[in-house]
Amino acid sequence: MQRRFLFSALTSLSLAALAPSTWAAEPLPLRVLVHSSFDLPKELLTQFEKAAGVRLQLVKSGDAGEMTNKLILTKARPIADVVFGIDNSLLPRALAAGVIEPYTGPAAQRAAAVTLGQGVVPVDYGYVSLNVDKAWFAQKGLALPTSLDDLAQPAYAKLLVVQHPGTSSPGQAFLHATIAGLGEEAAFAWWARMRSNGVKVVKGWTEAYYTEFTRNGGSRPIVVSYASSPAAEVFYAKDKLSESPTANLAFKGAVFRQVEGVALVRGGQPAAREAAGRFIEFLRSAPVQQALQTTMWMYPAEAGAARAEVMRLHAPEPATFDNPPPALADEKGRAWLQRWTQVVLK
């Protein structure tokens, strides 16, 4: 999620363990492919550059789905040395394309709150879920839906905006949640009903949340977003709020646990391989794990990492979620996307 954060608290960072053994006259360029929601305090990134003796080149490539597609399309001539933001729903696609090289350094060996495997180091995790604009429903006198079935009823026509699962990681995650929660046939029957009920499809999260969602001037009071989004609404509010103006709908088939990781890019610059490993370790360092909670609005993957207060108060983790087994998602993901396209768009 694209957010801005005024960094003031993390002043005691020590990156001595990342320091290079020798210094070059010119900093080594380290190309890091990230999705558009990658956001860490500039001070942290600058400290990493100085300690590791590199010059970061952040290559932002749209939503995580778009980023993964770009990584695959540039396989013959890689545009990065390390990639951050491939999640558990996109990982099978990246692995099948052979664009990732396993990392086995310390961060890959330490205990984590979540796992990805295949040499990809988890950095953060969150829950894709439905967010609602509470004030809109109160003003309309309409009860909040309590199930996916409710959303397909006439009373909720043209209220939901989702992201395209072919270009958006939360869009794909939500599709997979519906399949895991309802079963494949029932899920696609639900999607067909939603097409008739006026579901709107957009390219990515930013357009859905900042253009189509009623909280930001749009016409849709229900949006596929994250369980942490209500905490972000409180954090960025002009006036101090005791509760969030948005809420999560954590019902069956509507919640997917998303785990984001960092990995080496196969075929990246050999001279940058050591620095790429240092960047992976950096993303699992305590200051980064603390900062990402209120910049990227995800939960920290490092086991035992402290929670930011706003996350603790306004972004409790959902009690349940619906993820298809990774092997099944790997086997059928492409077919699910094709079927979704036929059902919803054609």
Rank of each mutant, 00 (worst) to 15 (best):
M1N: 01
A186L: 05
S36C: 12
F174L: 09
K200Q: 14
W190L: 14
A232F: 03
A111Y: 00
L175H: 11
D133G: 01
A51P: 02
A94K: 13
E66L: 12
S89T: 14
N216P: 00
G183K: 13
F213D: 05
P154W: 12
P78N: 10
Q57W: 00
A187Q: 12
V288Q: 12
P29E: 06
I79G: 05
G204T: 08
S169E: 13
E184M: 12
V121N: 06
A96M: 09
A112M: 06
L130R: 01
Q139G: 15
G333N: 02
W336L: 04
K332Y: 11
T211G: 01
P102E: 02
P316H: 04
P245L: 12
L142K: 14
I280C: 06
G261K: 06
D87G: 13
S21W: 00
A247R: 04
V262F: 01
K140W: 03
A263V: 06
G65H: 10
I100T: 11
K70C: 04
A327T: 13
G261W: 05
L328C: 00
F84S: 03
W340Y: 15
W136C: 12
M194L: 14
S129C: 15
V288I: 15
D63S: 15
N88H: 13
L283N: 09
P154C: 08
A291M: 06
V199Q: 10
V202S: 02
M1H: 05
R110C: 00
Y103R: 08
Q118K: 08
Q289H: 04
A291I: 12
W136A: 13
L130I: 11
L44I: 14
E184G: 04
V32R: 00
L345Y: 08
A80P: 08
L337I: 15
G268R: 04
D239R: 13
V202Q: 06
G141W: 07
W23H: 02
A97L: 06
A51V: 02
L95D: 02
N131H: 07
R339I: 10
W340L: 10
D39G: 14
L328I: 07
I100K: 14
P221H: 01
V161K: 07
P29V: 08
L71I: 04
G304E: 12
R266P: 00
T167K: 11
V234W: 05
Y226F: 14
L241R: 07
